[in-house]
Write a protein that binds this DNA or RNA. Structure first.
Lengths: 191, 191
DNA sequence: ATTTTGATTAATGTTACAATATTCAAAATG
DNA sequence: CATTTTGAATATTGTAACATTAATCAAAAT
């Protein structure tokens, strides 16, 4: 092992404060042995809790079909005004399957960012759809709501964040757990 | 202080295991600083819980044999939105400002992924809105359409991808360049 | 353009430590 | 006789310290 003459210290080097999974400094506390895993789960799920508000669907939905351009148009852009044979799209039609079983949730935080669900997004939830492993679901754990990927671990539910900075949440037998619906879409407004 | 010749060790003396407040052995765990108080609270709360649980064991997800979790479920509300939602939402109203000047474009590729616009997304474009520096715009460069962040460089337009794997696009003088509208939103369907 | 490099600094799980509390029965106390 | 005092040992409990791993930077190498 010979020393190369590069690498080593320079200003700004060294790990940064808050670069751990919690994004802040930590502290050690003493807890009863039997509660260790319980507390870790509680921490994991509250750290990645990501529901801001619930929104129910409007009773009388407006229809507003607009032109959708799906392909690159090589020879000039057809004016959005002269929609001769253009495909038209209505957002409610596109995003909502059954309006009777659909509602919305506004998301906060970045625990689902790798599933392209971002801070401030509104996700669309259909409670009539049967959740399958791998689906993004709205679930409640001891009354706390969260949107996560449904998985399982040894026959018990496990909720996966879509961000490696967050930890999976294992649902134990004596935990109150419920799946309220599957996430079928997401919308976002810019600025 | 003189030693008396009584007191001291005898068999059975010494503090007993489990004689602390938790009645069992303890362990130290590391938790985020901001959660310390909260966790102590959670510990105390759940330890001294004397709430009679009106919960039943049910099979959730009962139509898919691959997913069968046994767990407690809350005595059910049909939808959490019924219970928690104050507002109602119509996606057309939420996402579309000027309906006459709005159209949609489906996005291909990942060049705008850091602006949370993903492959397959449909973006909402309003051509009545004056594009400003920093806006996400639909532009055409010599007839090729692209969605990028509008910037400038030495008085000439520059289009920035939101993905470091892609290069900024500088618009030269003899290039046909047009801005067709600003991106006001994006929607995505899952699966 | 990407990978390798090494000194430094932080994160993280565990152990160690210091101070306090508990326990016992014999002896002292009243 | 009932209660209090006594001291060595052992546990509890909060915190400090430690070891290992991870992250960070820009120069040099590839």
């Amino acid at each position: 092992m010979k020393n190369k003459n590069w690498g080593g210290l320079r200003k700004g080097a060294g790990r940064k404060v808050g670069s751990g999974v919690y994004g802040e400094r930590t502290k050690v506390i003493r807890v009863p042995e039997s509660r260790v895993y319980d507390i870790r789960d509680y921490l994991a799920r509250t750290q990645s809790s990501n529901i801001v508000e619930f929104l129910s669907i409007e009773n009388n939905l407006n229809t507003n079909p607009r032109v959708l351009f799906e392909h690159k148009v090589a020879a000039g852009f057809p004016s959005p005004a002269d929609d001769h044979a253009e495909k038209k799209l209505d957002l409610n039609d596109y995003l909502i399957g059954q309006k009777e079983t659909t509602f919305f949730v506004r998301i906060k935080g970045d625990s689902m960012i790798d599933a392209s669900i971002h801070d401030g997004d509104i996700v669309i939830i259909d409670r009539s759809r049967q959740a399958k492993i791998g689906d993004i679901v709205l679930a409640s754990i001891d009354g706390d709501f969260t949107v996560k990927i449904l998985s399982n671990q040894g026959g018990r539910p496990r909720l996966l964040p879509a961000n490696e900075k967050y930890r999976p949440i294992d649902i134990k037998k004596d935990t109150t757990f419920e799946i309220w619906g599957t996430v079928t879409g997401a919308v976002r407004k810019f600025k």
